[in-house]
Design a protein around this nucleic acid. Structure first.
Length: 281
DNA sequence: GTTTAACCCTGCACGC
DNA sequence: TGCGTGCAGGGTTAAA
């Protein structure tokens, strides 16, 4: 899940769970359930105890991190990684496989953290400690924030000497882009993945800046990208509609939507990276 | 500072 | 049919 999917999830949760009080919390018995919380919590009970009885007061997002704010000034921090997601359930309905954390609400209904690959992570921490925690301290500028300005972006690009694709995916540099949207951004900007960040013309920097905002905003408008594997669906189980909007990701060998040349794929540090060899220079 | 690779994990596509 | 293999992917960590 990348920024747009986390943002859609944030907005859904904001409408649906803010104001609810948490009843019983169950970290499920399977080993993977413990894996998800164990970095910051020794036992299932400790984690559950920090949530039980609390009221949800707001939902925020930092890059790909989701922050569930609680009424005792603590925060449930969630990272969905690849296959994690929240599912709204009805009381008493069966838990689907790979449900690792089950949060019941006092007034009925529940929230389930489901994650087949168990890469996702959750922890509870005091709000005032968040800024000093390793996970969130290093988060870079968020492309939806008003602080993401062209002059600042331009200056930051110039002080690095990295290839654009890994730089766009670096969460310390800019927060929220993953493998799918970094490819889409580079296509929208007409730039190759291996162009160096400090060797762009000011026109190219501006194209890149615009592309980031457009790709992210469009993906949110289409409620995120649901690939064939259905790894991402929204809070209520509905797929996003951004898949058909993708210009390059997953389209190896297919005709470029702009120039009809075949889309190419190369491996960049283990990740498939898609681009048009004609449109991107 | 930059670059690469391994690791975590399951589901699925593939070949034999 | 059934098995083994390889791949997907975000972030962390280690190593080159």
């Amino acid at each position: 899940m990348e920024l747009p999917e986390v943002e859609v999830m944030r907005r859904d949760l904001e409408k649906d769970v803010v104001g609810r009080r948490i009843g019983k919390v169950d970290v499920r018995p399977q080993k993977n359930a413990l894996t998800i919380i164990k970095k910051h919590h020794r036992t299932r009970k400790e984690f559950a105890g920090l949530l039980e009885g609390r009221k949800i007061t707001g939902i925020e997002r930092r890059g790909k991190y989701l922050l569930v704010k609680l009424d005792d000034d603590s925060v449930l921090v969630v990272h969905f990684k690849m296959s994690g997601r929240f599912v709204r359930g009805r009381k008493g309905s069966e838990l689907q496989p790979h449900t690792h954390v089950h949060i019941e609400f006092a007034q009925g209904g529940d929230l389930r953290f489901v994650d087949p690959r168990a890469f996702g992570r959750m922890f509870v921490a005091p709000a005032d400690k968040l800024e000093t925690m390793a996970e969130l301290q290093k988060i870079g500028i968020d492309p939806l924030e008003h602080t993401f300005t062209w002059p600042e972006f331009s200056a930051k690009l110039a002080e690095r000497r990295m290839k654009l694709k890994p730089l766009l995916m670096d969460q310390e540099f800019i927060a929220g882009l993953g493998n799918i949207y970094s490819d889409e951004v580079l296509f929208a900007a007409g730039l190759r993945h291996d162009r160096k960040s400090d060797e762009l013309s000011s026109q190219e920097v501006r194209r890149l800046y615009r592309a980031i905002q457009e790709v992210v905003q469009d993906a949110i408008r289409f409620r995120g990208t649901t690939l064939e594997d259905q790894a991402y669906v929204d809070l209520f189980g509905n797929p996003g509609e951004n898949l058909t909007e993708l210009k390059v990701y997953g389209r190896r060998g297919l005709a470029c939507r702009r120039c009809r040349s075949p889309i190419e794929m190369v491996k960049i540090s283990g990740r498939g990276s898609y681009f048009c060899p004609v449109c991107q220079t």
